[in-house]
Write a protein that binds this DNA or RNA. Sequence first.
RNA 1: GGGCAGGUACCCAAGCGGCCAAAGGGGACUGACUGUAAAUCAGUUGUCAGACGACUUCGGGGGUUCGAAUCCCUCCCUGCCCA
Length: 404
Amino acid sequence: MNIEEQVAIIMQGTEYGDEDVKKSMAKELLERMKEAEAEKRPLRVYCGYDPTSTDLHLGHTITMRKLRQFQEFGHDVVFLIGNYTSLVGDPSDKDKLRPMLTPEQVMENARTYSEQAFRILDREKTQVLYNAEWLSKIDFAELIHLASNFTVQQFINRDNFKKRWENGDPVYLHETFYAIMQAYDAHHLQADVQIGGSDQLFNIITAGRKLMTALGGKPNIGVIVGILPGTDGVVRMSKSLGNHIPINSDAKDMFGKVMSVPDMAMLDYARLATRWVPDEVAEFANELESGALHPRDAKMKLGLEIVEIFYGADEAQKAKTAFINVFQKGNMPEKMDEYVVKPGQVLLDILEESGLVKSRGEGRRMVDQNAVKLDGEVLSDAMEELPHLGVLQVGKRRFVRVVE
RNA sequence: GGGCAGGUACCCAAGCGGCCAAAGGGGACUGACUGUAAAUCAGUUGUCAGACGACUUCGGGGGUUCGAAUCCCUCCCUGCCCA
């Protein structure tokens, strides 16, 4: 594959919010790749991840996929864990202050991060680093020097700060350190390329490039990818919003979650969360547009691909079959938790103790709403014992097999 | 340091002595319809209690009152203006 083709693959799904920036980054990337080839050195590519929670989700995998692509093209990849930056909390993707985490929380979260990441990245070719290693050593004099490269105006003009400013919400001084810290990471790593979501535009392009230049190096090239919407199809995927697809979910669950994504978000998923090359994505879009592919089947194709990335073709196929079986045909899932009834327990007790509902109040409500079924038959009295053993179901997707 | 405006359930936001478990919206959940999509319609959304009712909740603590989210004191937190 020639370098032009490589660049095309890398640039798929990128979003700079400005065509000129995109063009110039693509051009710079091309030049840098050629330069590296001439010098027979690999590029140094990195992406930082703040361990703000224990689960990585599909949204995180977009940048990982980019890292992976670079690995496949023979470049060096740093998987940077922002254990120091997350002490501040990146204000970029929120219109609110992010809670500061304690070092203990951060390390706890970081522990499983890289392991999950290797589902996508090539372990052999990945260097895992923690930015506390260098950031914790910066003293105040250095910070002053770093900060003197930026103006307050640059920061308050950022959308997220501006919005809060206008709403009368607090913007804390320490939040402005985040961009400086990230920029310093890029400098310290002598990165050729930095990958990030479009919320990272300021941190990577504005702050990073400026600081790297100011400190006498070459600026990194930003590969800015689009933001994957969550299962609600609108807002960015995030665990705290509850619209995420964890990469630790099992194959069936993952498939189901992809199916629950609204149609309008399908193309985003195709572009960002699959391994498809630009031509394949274009074909998918065409089939969808022309109606050659039923939206439901399109989404299944998407689900199949995404699950396959993490679990392989067999498991993906099984997940799809199970999905069709349970949800399309309305059958029971093959595997479910079991609950052992105790003598004298009425329906409400069982619902609560088996964890099908969160409180007895909710249990009553579910029964009132005809949401509780035993082997497909609606149960309407919460205070009766079960007429027989069987599969107890609440709503569409909560099942427990009641046994003795 | 001074003045002013605020802190209400998952989020936004009304309420400003009893009729407040607290309007409205969002979100979430359930049902109908479907492609476990979206949209739409109907309902639910503190805990316990088979319906009566009880209990906990309106930044923290203390007080006034028969009775407080609502009044008073105090502390903490935020924004704006002034210094």
